[in-house]
Design a protein around this nucleic acid. Structure first.
Lengths: 348, 348
DNA sequence: GTGAAAGCGCTAACAG
DNA sequence: CTGTTAGCGCTTTCAC
């Protein structure tokens, strides 16, 4: 049943009120072909004719009919940034704005538009799948898919050129992706804390159905080594509240904890709040580190030591990868893994 | 020169590898017309035939070619949410996620897709204008335009059905819009503070080229009445830092200030930080109120008293308005003004 | 350097 | 209920 959808009937404007290439050709006294050449860069058109045609375009207020162009040429000139999160983190994450801005700029240099699309639940996901499969876009950048991502099935089946942002669990070999080495980052920041003599080190993870959560947890686990203790682990859901509750649970089980590796800055904010409520000072009694270097990281007191993602390179690689796919230059799926960077602030 | 753009050449997939309605018709042993009827809801098609056609669609992995459909039918089934901010606030504003979610859900009920599009600078704005004018979307929701918004010119000239979110300065009569009564809200919250005997009341405004900033300032000004003093006013740019700096300036000029009406929660966070640095307690020495009821409002200590926007109704009105435009039911531009709600927390 | 013309895939109007 | 058919507006050979 894929791709079956019903469009609303009845639109306001009669289609006839928009000038077409024919109107322009008539006014300029040339053929449709020539007008087409002009609006596509003007190769093989005499300057004088160019001027005439452009004037006609201007005076008619002509603008190209993208549907016709796409139907004929087979591509749309736009790319979707697909956000299939069930929760709202991505929008709250200031990193998201950075991503959007960079993608937008990079794609624009290729003459492509960036469209951001979202899906909150299964229904919307299927609706979005219809959209993407219907040829509305030439390709897609897919943000942080969950492990159970049915969109991934759908899209990879549709053969839409696709670059996944983050490691797509279960699809590592089939798809192209660019990811940050979360495991290494978590390892590094945990060791950083350990080197300060802050053991035992507890952690609050994100939801473990995302690769970033798993990797961060894995990095932490490897860093603490034999000292690993399930009682030092709490699981959160990226929310501030879950960070707060995580600390409450941890303090019950291991009141001796000396530091806290939290899988996101926002949860770290909650964690610090709970620590304060429990009478522990940061960083004197408990060192706290976060992840993401989000705005929250600078809003806490003390500000958070955290991991910053290499967005510049990240977006560049993703767009390059997608362009290769779109231009038919890619031989197969490719992968890039980048390193995050430790940002030292007051919390650890 | 509008609408003249150059698309990238050379796309990966040969157009021929996607099945069309003809392939489906052949496989199902019916005509193209019947297939079209099936994929458009199946009116006037026998159940048995429906089944056959659907099976053919499934087995071929057919999905509709949106370009062809749009070219023929004159509409795309999608709507743009246009963000033309020069800065990134919108993405950082958690309210943005709420807006997107609600718009998305509401539009989906109408069988329409929501596309979020952005423009960071003049160039991108013009590029975006091309996109929107080219018939990629049936209509647009335009977020918080600045006073100098050239996109507004462009779009209103293109006759694209348009609903502005926020009051479009200088276009109030020409366009449809839905806005929150910021002036009333600012008045209310300023009076709330005054009623607690917290005068003199200072304020930190947003950038005054937005209608919301102006209105909030105006409401404050009206509430303080004759007590108004330019020394009690600082101008920010919505950023946390600007809130902090605002307080520093205010304390220099009017160290006797007893309360602070800040035009956004984020700036209020900065303001509270600066107050603390200056040895003033909130709310004992200085009462602080914010605007927006954003996540930041609950992250401060004490949490912020602020104004919550009526998003539910806001999005509903905007989508209804746009639908009227799209369906040709609108007689002219319409306007809706909604009231915000005071949320009492610890800061005032 | 320019014109003519063949479709791209689909919908909807018209016959039957 | 179903088949047939005429384009929607544009790009792109192919001639000239």
């Amino acid at each position: 049943m894929k791709s079956v959808e019903v469009l609303p009937r009845g639109q306001a404007k009669s289609p006839r009120d928009r000038p077409t290439i024919v109107d322009v050709a008539q006014l300029a006294g040339v053929s449709r072909g020539t007008v087409s050449r002009v609006i596509n860069g003007g190769r093989n058109v005499r300057p004088a004719v160019m001027v005439k045609v452009r004037a006609a375009i201007e005076s008619l207020g002509y603008s190209v009919n993208q549907a016709a162009r796409t139907l004929r040429s087979g591509h749309t000139g736009s790319v979707a940034f697909v956000i299939s999160e069930r929760r709202e983190h991505l929008f709250e994450d200031p990193n998201f704005g950075v991503l959007v801005r960079q993608f937008s700029r990079l794609l624009r240099q290729q003459g492509r538009h960036l469209l951001i699309t979202t899906a909150q639940d299964k229904d919307e996901e299927s609706f979005l799948g219809d959209y993407l499969s219907a040829g509305h876009v030439d390709g897609a950048l897919l943000a942080q898919p969950h492990a159970d991502e049915s969109l991934l099935d759908r899209l990879s089946a549709s053969e839409l050129p696709l670059v996944v942002l983050g490691r797509p669990l279960g699809w590592e070999n089939a798809l192209s992706w660019v990811a940050v080495d979360n495991k290494a980052a978590a390892y590094e920041i945990s060791k950083y804390v350990a080197a300060q003599g802050r053991s035992p080190i507890a952690t609050i993870t994100g939801p473990l159905d995302t690769s970033s959560s798993r990797e961060r947890f894995e990095g932490y686990r490897r860093a603490v080594g034999k000292a690993f203790d399930p009682d030092l682990v709490a699981h959160g859901d990226w929310s501030l509240l879950s960070g707060q509750q995580g600390v409450e649970r941890l303090l019950e089980r291991r009141p001796d904890l000396k530091s806290l590796v939290v899988a996101s800055d926002l949860m770290a904010v909650g964690a610090m709040r709970a620590l304060r409520a429990a009478g522990r000072r940061v960083p004197e009694d408990v060192a706290v580190v976060g992840f993401d270097d989000s705005a929250a990281a600078t809003m806490t007191d003390p500000p958070l030591t955290t991991i910053r993602n290499p967005f510049e390179q990240f977006t560049l690689e993703a767009v390059k990868m997608l362009d290769n796919l779109l231009m038919g230059r890619a031989v197969g799926p490719s992968h890039v893994v980048l390193r995050g960077e430790l940002v030292r602030r007051g919390s650890a």
